[in-house]
Design a protein around this nucleic acid. Structure first.
Length: 259
DNA sequence: AATACTACCAACCGCACATGG
DNA sequence: TCCATGTGCGGTTGGTAGTAT
């Protein structure tokens, strides 16, 4: 026999809260506090589970909640604390007054994780570049790469992605060494020929590259479009173009680390 | 203009821990 | 010490708005 449910499920409302429900909850808590969440909804006249009431109050209705975008300082704090604490959202939230664990968790998954992963990718790439030579890549040859060799890579989004990439970047000299997971480079450098690189897993690349989140744009210094790639920096295609541009010269790499 | 896709975020769910009888 | 209950936490889902095709 398992534990009983936190509340009687039958007849209780789920889903988005209405203004009326919000007012009932706020009024009750302002007058009586919230000593017992389970008993609260009935006393407040709400057809909600106690857990639902608690969540609504903690994450949205609390008077000290800070709304709006996260500042650069707040984002930096989250990134730093996540490095040391991991997914302990409540602990991270405790250091950011007015922010909730749920909000921080959402921000992490939608913005900050991508930024951190990208920074890690760029950092590892730079480290590898420091110990390797220029690699010449003929992107047209990606059309002939077997599917299972570039699954999940930035160049895998669709046939359209690959063809537009090829059309735009024929035989571009590029100092890239790990644009993707298990991507084979058609290198003219014998040491790196057919080198299989594996710095990031597939999900990582899908998160980073399939994203149309432009928040990366102001953070990463997108090289000027002077090499003929011609990608617009706002779409999935653009992400690919961006990655092509990104590794055009090794001299650009230090700037890219300025997250 | 219609459809598909993606990002965002509020809310839910289940588990773990805390507490009190 | 055990058990029932309440609460908190982190993972996940689903609805919606915006954007691309």
């Amino acid at each position: 026999m398992g534990r009983s449910p936190c509340c009687e499920k039958i007849g209780l409302k789920k889903g988005p809260w209405t203004k009326e429900e919000d007012h009932l909850l706020i009024n009750y808590i302002e007058e009586n506090g919230h000593k017992n969440w389970r008993a609260l909804p009935k006393k407040a006249g709400l057809l909600r589970c106690g857990k639902s009431c608690r969540l609504r109050w903690i994450n949205y209705l609390r008077p000290d909640i800070k709304r709006g975008n996260f500042s650069k300082d707040e984002e930096d704090t989250i990134i730093k604390l996540h490095q040391s604490l991991g997914n302990r959202w409540s602990a991270i939230a405790a250091t950011l007054p007015g922010r909730t664990d749920n909000e921080i968790k959402n921000v992490w998954h939608t913005h900050l994780k991508k930024r951190v992963l990208l920074k890690q990718a760029v950092t590892s790439t730079k480290q590898e570049l420091d110990s390797t030579t220029m690699v010449q890549v003929d992107y047209q040859d990606f059309n002939s790469i077997p599917q299972n060799n570039h699954q999940g890579s930035p160049l895998h989004s669709s046939n359209d992605d690959i063809s537009s990439l090829s059309a735009a970047t024929t035989t571009t000299t590029t100092t890239t060494s790990d644009l993707s997971n298990k991507m084979y480079l058609n290198s003219h450098d014998s040491d790196l020929n057919n080198k299989q690189v594996e710095h990031l897993d597939q999900d990582c690349w899908q998160d980073v590259v399939s994203s149309q989140d432009n928040s990366l744009s102001p953070v990463i210094h997108h090289p000027t479009d002077d090499n003929g790639c011609g990608f617009n920096p706002t779409t999935t295609h653009d992400d690919i173009g961006f990655w092509c541009d990104l590794f055009t010269t090794s001299e650009e790499m230090p700037d890219l680390l300025d997250f």
